[in-house]
Design a protein around this nucleic acid. Structure first.
Length: 681
RNA sequence: GGGGCUGUAGCUCAGUUGGUUAGAGCUGGGAACUCAUAAUUCCUAGGUCGCGGGUUCAAGUCCUGCCAGCCCUACCA
């Protein structure tokens, strides 16, 4: 039975380029949509740029151009990046559209008429120079708790959280001006009035993974829901609220409505009715989002939809974040790779497959390990799948396909029977499982060719029919894999369709072998991924990040440090925290320091660890330090080093210092406040 | 501190309602083959299934207590 599905991915913010972290979501969604279409369902993939808010306004101002100019450029670059990865939207809109403004008005009316909106005065920091209210992240200052300077507006590295108004010496990051406290009326949605509905929906709709439902019930639904502040005073880039001049809808109010507005634009172009997609029980609505925006899509958004009379999400699919090589992506490490940069170095097919092989239906972070990426893509896709076609391609071009499907030991039938299990895995967003099932089939296909030895048949005039049969089996098994992989690798499906002169458009094509047709000239469908390319990509990302940082002027100054020290002494093997904890580093005070006349390099130190605890240490720093200048200062020592007998006495530890030696030795210092005996963690 | 998830071969993971000698791929070792992108095929090595208790005729699988890692929270949304 054919279903009707409306699918969205979260709207990317028009404040920056698409990077590989974003792509997890757009690819996850694209794969799901392509799968649904392949299965013959009516499915729309809707997205748009999220264009409003202070950040866009500030950036446009900084770049000396209009917001419209900025968001137009961003939209274009986003769409170019998505296209580069084969992400195919049915419609890509913008939240800054007439349709969105109109539908926002409709939602607003619904909220008003159901008496869910209240006005309250809010005190907020205001930048008098930039003439704008400041969100927490635009304020920095001194932590009121511990006194650290230059801390974020809502929390300090010391762990304390506070309101930006609590900061000592607050500074606006926009202008550097000192913000002042200013009052403004804000409009709030009283979400609590929808508590009963939301409770019910979260618990029983089946739209949420159980982990998410539990989380919401434990954290938010367990108590009174707070009013949601949905307005921002001018100046603000967005839509002015019709019945509240000078106030604008908060970006998170109009962003999800953008899903509907973008659908509306598609409807207008295709002569369809919006109600058939957004107000029909026959249409499923699926949202794909990251775990960071769970809250907006599982409480506010259903509340808004309910109030305005639109369909509630059938399912909110929530995914985790992307790590690279086991750690958070970082600009500095070059692991926050822009989509555009990726495309310069690596085949997008590789990323599509790799993500698919890692994704499940759970809210779990996934890891892109560079070496795993290379191994997996090369051995699975190139070594197993593409190779299957590649190894018989030349013969098949000459022989064509047999008129009836030959005996293959049940391989095709078995793989056809697996189709439903694979489809089910796709449907459940268990792509990793789907990929595993498909690769099992690929693993069974290559031995067939191997044992049939077509290269021997090729040399024997009388065995051309046999050869054709082998090619027929191999190419049909390949074609079957191409169908199963089509949601993930549409371009491979295209290559396969072209080779066999039969376009792959339906899942059902995996169930019946293709026979009796000619085979085109084989051309390479995919190249192996080289680890060097990945390395170059990371390297280029680092350079870009440094350039960006310089351009925005916000980043830390760049230092021209030589790479010689690292070359002289490369990084040691990785250790665990346990290994590190074996080394007991302590802060110590130099109590005495004296020359050892017979020694060439050594000074004799007495280090105090507080109280009466002292250690005698011989340190090779004679050429670099005078004893007198050391007495009284704090150093870091290795305190649990096995004592060693030296010519001049026992040495009971080491003083931590860097440098090649001789006069170039630099003792580690500790910041003011450290006490002798404290351990270094 | 609270909540959740995970812990199976060197690596990435599978192990359905508890049931015969715990599996796959990659990597490693050996061999074969040459059609294919140093691809492929065959053989082989490698695991006290995090640790300790318990239930059971039987536990990787259920219960319980620890330990480790990750994620979310910490009165912000």
């Amino acid at each position: 039975m054919s279903r009707r599905l409306l699918v969205t991915a979260a709207l990317p913010y028009a404040n920056g380029p698409i990077h590989i972290g974003h792509l997890v979501e757009y690819l996850q969604t694209d794969i799901w949509v392509r799968f649904q279409k392949l299965r013959g369902h009516r499915c729309l993939y809707i997205c748009a740029d999220d264009t409003h808010g202070t950040a866009i306004m500030i950036r446009a101002r900084k770049e000396g151009r209009s917001e419209l100019d900025l968001i137009a450029e961003m939209s274009e670059s986003h769409q170019r990046d998505f296209a580069g990865f084969g992400i195919e939207f049915d419609h890509y809109g913008s939240t800054h559209s007439d349709e969105n403004q109109a539908i926002c008005g409709e939602f607003w009316q619904a909220l008003r008429s159901q008496d869910l909106v209240v006005e309250r005065i809010v005190q907020q920091l205001f930048d008098p120079e930039a003439e704008t209210f400041l969100a927490d992240r635009f304020v920095r200052g001194t932590c009121p708790k511990c006194g650290r300077t230059d801390q974020a507006g809502d929390n300090c590295t010391c762990g304390h959280t506070y309101a930006p108004t609590d900061l000592i010496d607050p500074i606006s990051t926009l202008s550097g001006a000192t913000p002042v406290l200013k009052e403004a009326p804000h409009l709030f949605v009283q979400l609590e009035k929808l508590h009963g509905f939301l409770q019910e929906w979260v618990a029983t709709s089946g739209a949420l993974q159980s982990e998410t439902a539990n989380y919401l019930q434990g954290h938010f639904l367990a108590e009174e829901l707070r009013d949601w502040d949905v307005s921002r005073p001018a100046p603000y880039f967005g839509f002015e609220i019709p019945d509240s001049p000078g106030n604008y809808w908060y970006v998170w109010f109009d962003a999800p409505i953008g899903y509907i507005a973008s659908t509306q634009q598609w409807c207008q172009r295709n002569g369809e009715q919006l109600a058939d997609w957004w107000k029909s029980d026959d249409c499923e609505v699926h949202h794909f989002i990251g775990k960071d925006i769970t809250y907006f899509h599982t409480l506010f958004w259903p509340g808004m939809l309910k109030t305005a009379g639109y369909s509630l999400p059938t399912k909110v699919h929530i995914h985790g974040f992307l790590n690279v090589n086991g750690t958070k992506m970082s600009k500095r490490d070059g692991t926050l790779v822009k989509a555009e940069t990726f495309l310069k170095h690596v085949d997008p097919k590789a990323l599509r497959y790799f993500y698919a092989s890692k994704l499940s239906s759970r809210v779990e972070d996934l890891d892109l390990s560079i070496s795993e990426f290379v191994d997996k893509v090369n051995s699975d896709l190139v070594g197993k799948v593409v190779n299957l076609a590649s190894r018989v391609g030349k013969f098949a071009h000459r022989t064509g396909l047999s008129d009836s499907y030959p005996e293959d030991g049940g391989l095709f039938a078995k793989a056809a029977a697996q189709g439903e299990a694979i489809a089910e895995a796709y449907e459940q967003c268990e792509y990793a499982r789907a990929m595993r099932l498909i690769m099992e089939l690929a693993d069974a296909a290559n031995p067939f060719v191997e044992h049939a030895r077509p290269w021997e048949m090729n040399k024997d005039e009388s065995r051309q029919d046999e050869l054709r049969d082998v090619c027929t089996v191999a190419l049909n098994l390949f074609r079957q894999l191409a169908v199963y992989l089509a949601p993930v690798l549409p371009s491979l499906a295209d290559s396969c369709g072209e080779l066999l002169g039969d376009k792959l458009v339906s899942w059902d094509q995996s169930q019946t072998p293709l026979v009796g047709s000619s085979v085109g000239k084989f051309t390479r469908m995919m190249d192996r991924v080289q680890i060097e390319d990945l390395e170059k990509m990371i390297e280029e990302s680092k350079v870009e990040a440094a350039a960006d940082a310089e351009a925005t002027g916000l980043a830390t100054p760049t230092f021209q440090d030589s790479d010689q020290p690292l070359k002289d002494e490369p990084l040691a093997d990785e250790i665990t925290i346990d290994d590190f904890m074996k080394v007991d580093l302590r802060v110590a005070r130099v109590i005495t320091a004296e020359q050892v006349p017979e020694a060439n390099k050594l000074l004799k130190l007495t280090l105090g660890l507080g109280g009466d605890e002292t250690r005698q240490v011989f340190a090779g720093i004679k050429a670099a330090y005078d004893p007198d200048q050391l007495v009284g200062r704090m150093v870091v020592m290795v305190a649990n080093l096995k004592p060693r007998k030296m010519r001049f006495g026992m040495s009971e530890g080491m003083v931590a210092a860097s440098g090649p030696g001789g006069a170039d030795v630099f003792i580690l210092s500790v910041d003011e406040g450290a006490l002798p005996g404290q351990r270094v963690h």
